[in-house]
Computed example of a mutant assay.
Amino acid sequence: MGVNSTFRASVPQIFVDLDRTKAKTMGIPLDSIFGTLQAYLGSVYINDFQYNNRLHQVRAQADAKFRASMEEILKLEVRNQAGEMVPLSAVLSVQETLGPTAVRRYNLFPAASVNGAAAPGFSSGQALSVMETMAGSKLPPGFGFQWTGISFQEKLSSQGQGLILGLAVVFVFLVLAAQYESWSSPAAVLVIVPLSAVGVVLALNFLSADNNVYTQIGLVLLIGLASKNAILIVEFASELRSKGKSIHEAALDASALRFRAILMTSLSGVLGFLPLAVATGAGAASRRAVGNVVIGGMLAATVFSLLFVGAFFVMLRSLSEKGLKLKVANTKTEKVHGESEMLADD
């Protein structure tokens, strides 16, 4: 929306084509030619003088009537190395043309700036993607584009989004693995994280919100908050299993006994972030973005943790115990084979 550019290639200009080889052959220094053009058509600084306690500059410039047309340029004369005056028409030609008012450069390349904003209902990330697609399909060969300013910072920050979320999940998993001294229990807890993301997607679509930096911060925060509900079930189920109950009974009892605790912690979290979701005033957009993500994710995590965490605990704990039994059986088999070999040697 509002895409515009200050670049204009249709500004009337006068192009002066200097034959450098001919100028050197005639003994005319190039500095003299450029200095003459600057002094007559532009201006050249002479000195300063003081008048009525004020300092004034002295600049030399041709009178307006002597620089009003292209023909006047060709009438200018310059002195060669022999001291003779040579008309500029002998070494240069003048023609009318069109071009930009000023040539900007970016990383030493000629460049034109293009500015715009996202249309209502679309995020800045979507607008950047559309601009990249249009530039890739419309620009001729040899042309490229790069982002600057806020757009560059946004593209740079979005590249680490997946890495940050991945590291957050890994750190939570390692902390839980150290706490439970098991690999299966933390996995059962972290299964709730992608399920809680469903609530985030639904909340953003329902509110027509965009995915910005504050939304991503809310996602990192949601990883720990969503895991908290699953921890209540997994920890209690692990204790019941260690007391001798079957895996299925431990999961069912833990889900039933921790139902009230999960609802209380989830509701307290949702109510705690509710002021962010309805914030107004300066900076309200960032607070609403975080609040929408956390509230939507927490509601989904509450429902899905009660429905699926127990099932994932049963599945992962059963696989873990079967693997442990298989390992013990293999160890015993190797021990028996080792004793048989010793008896055979005797």
Rank of each mutant, 00 (worst) to 15 (best):
S227M: 08
F34W: 12
V3T: 10
S158E: 15
S340F: 04
L98Q: 14
I192F: 06
L319Y: 13
N229W: 03
A64F: 08
F259S: 01
L207F: 03
I262K: 08
M264I: 09
F173A: 00
G281W: 02
A119D: 08
K65L: 10
A9Q: 01
N4D: 06
I164N: 10
I223H: 02
S238P: 01
A226F: 11
G310Q: 05
A289R: 04
G2T: 03
G42R: 10
G99F: 08
N229Q: 10
Y51C: 06
V16Y: 06
S113F: 10
V328I: 11
L319P: 12
A111M: 09
E334K: 11
S151A: 13
Q13K: 03
A9I: 01
V278C: 07
D19P: 02
G162W: 15
V200N: 07
S151T: 15
L306V: 05
A90C: 02
Q216K: 14
G125Q: 13
G310M: 04
M131N: 04
M26W: 08
A90S: 11
A251H: 09
I164S: 14
Q38W: 08
V200A: 07
R59Q: 15
E235T: 03
G283P: 02
I262F: 00
S157W: 04
M342H: 13
K327R: 14
Q146D: 11
R317S: 13
R59I: 14
S93T: 08
V16E: 02
G283H: 02
M1R: 03
G42S: 05
L18G: 05
E339I: 14
I46E: 01
L306Y: 04
I247S: 07
S151I: 03
V328D: 13
V170L: 15
S196A: 15
S113E: 11
S268N: 13
F312H: 05
I28A: 06
V336R: 14
D346Q: 02
L190R: 03
N205F: 14
Y51M: 13
G283E: 01
E239N: 09
K22A: 09
I231C: 02
